[in-house]
Simulated scan of single mutants.
Amino acid sequence: MNDAAAVFESNHKKLSLISFNSGTINLINEGALQYYIKVLFVPAGYTLTVDFNRYETQQATLFFVNSNQYLQVDVAGEEDAFLINYNRDFYCIQIHDEEVACDGLLFNNIFEIPKVDLFAAELDVISMLFKQVRDELSLQDSSSEEMIRIYLKQIIIRATRTWKKQNLENEKVHMQGVDQDFLRNFGRLVDIHYREKHAVADYAAMLHLAPKTLTQKFHKLNLESPNEFIKNRIILEAKRLLLYTGLSIKEIAFKLGYDDPAYFNRLFTQKCLTSPASFRRKISE
């Protein structure tokens, strides 16, 4: 790829493809891409932090990062990696299938696993799709927008299938489609309401279940309790607010639905083994 970035922009719709390596990771880390949805195609030998979890690539890997999620490329290699970033106007309208939309399984799953490992034939196909996106961006034809969207959707569909095989079809977690739909629905509700609803009973009611039944469903699937999942989502947002905003700890507590900042402080410290103030200081450094 000759240029570091190729861009499509029309009205409010925007998508770009950026190539980067050890010499140009500032293109990814400078913060300008925070509000875009991102798909990264990364070779072996890279280390990334996504929402404060660290990943080292042992082979080519796809990462899926939603807008406002924390992303940092910590270690890059000599071989180029590629990032497609786009806004919701480009690809995220209601008619898109929920599972492959911008807030679908890859970008918002209950396991908080944002990556897909690529092997053999699947690696060849994904490489070709990224090349086709690059070629369309270079062409800038009147039909390029729709062609790019088709290639992007193919990447997401193929990666979704592979993600399921890698994460839902193993000895520890084996789920039928009904279980997957149930968990996606629960995760979606938590993502919408976590700021004002902190109790398992709130979500059980929205799912027309007894709180005990909801907890038992998680137990049967060898998952953390729904109560822990709700707390984890709250703490994740707290970390993002500590990083991205200048809000005080008290203001963050109120924003996340806690009238007692001291209780929020204790919850954060219990889950993260450090206080909110110490976390902010460390992540800023």
Rank of each mutant, 00 (worst) to 15 (best):
M1A: 13
K13V: 03
L15W: 04
F20E: 10
N29I: 08
E30S: 14
I37F: 15
K38N: 12
A44R: 14
F52K: 08
R54W: 02
Q59A: 07
A60W: 05
A60N: 10
T61Q: 05
L62W: 02
F63N: 02
V65H: 01
Q69L: 00
V73P: 00
V75P: 00
G77S: 00
F82K: 00
Y86K: 00
N87W: 02
R88M: 01
D89R: 01
D89C: 00
Y91H: 03
I95L: 04
I95W: 05
H96P: 01
D97F: 06
V100N: 14
A101D: 15
G104R: 10
E112Q: 15
S127C: 08
S127T: 15
L129Q: 14
F130D: 12
F130G: 09
Q132P: 04
Q132K: 15
V133K: 11
L139Q: 11
S143N: 10
S144N: 05
E146Q: 13
K153N: 09
Q154H: 08
I157G: 06
I157L: 14
R158E: 09
R158A: 10
Q166I: 04
E169Q: 10
K172W: 10
V173G: 01
H174Q: 12
M175R: 13
Q176R: 06
Q176D: 08
V178T: 06
F182W: 07
R184N: 12
F186W: 11
L189R: 10
D191Q: 09
I192S: 04
H193C: 08
H198D: 09
A201H: 08
D202I: 06
D202C: 10
D202T: 08
A204Y: 13
A205C: 07
L207N: 13
P211Q: 12
L214M: 09
F218I: 08
N232K: 11
R233A: 03
R233E: 05
I235N: 02
L236Y: 02
A238T: 03
K239W: 01
T245F: 01
L247V: 00
K250D: 06
K250M: 01
K255T: 04
D260N: 11
P261M: 04
A262S: 06
Q270S: 14
L273W: 07
K282Y: 08
K282E: 10
